[in-house]
Amino acid sequence: MTGELLFASVGVILFALGVAGVLLIGHLLRRVLAFNVMGSGAFLVLVGLAQRNGIADPVPQAMVLTGIVVAVAATALALALVRRLYVLTGKLELSQDDDE
């Protein structure tokens, strides 16, 4: 097992951890954290798996670079919506009524 594959495996674990977090945690700010962990896991799989033969590959690296910047924009947007929701309703969780 190479270091690259090790980090790809970590990425898989982080992604699963993030998905479970997004599904199980009600608090919206914590959900944003879980969503970010999920994204980091996907980035690690993308680069780690592409470089599993030990040679640096600029193509997935460039895509992850793009992805990180988009992820922070998504986080800021999510936080803006969470704060707006809190101003309007005083709640930090989504209501369960729509699920039924």
């Binding site: 594959l5 790809a8 898989v12 798996l49 033969n53 590959d57």
Partner: peptide
């Protein structure tokens, strides 16, 4: 992932 064949395209 551990079963994966080596990549057929060499992007680098």
């Amino acid at each position: 992932m551990f079963d994966l064949a080596p990549a057929s395209v060499q992007l680098h």
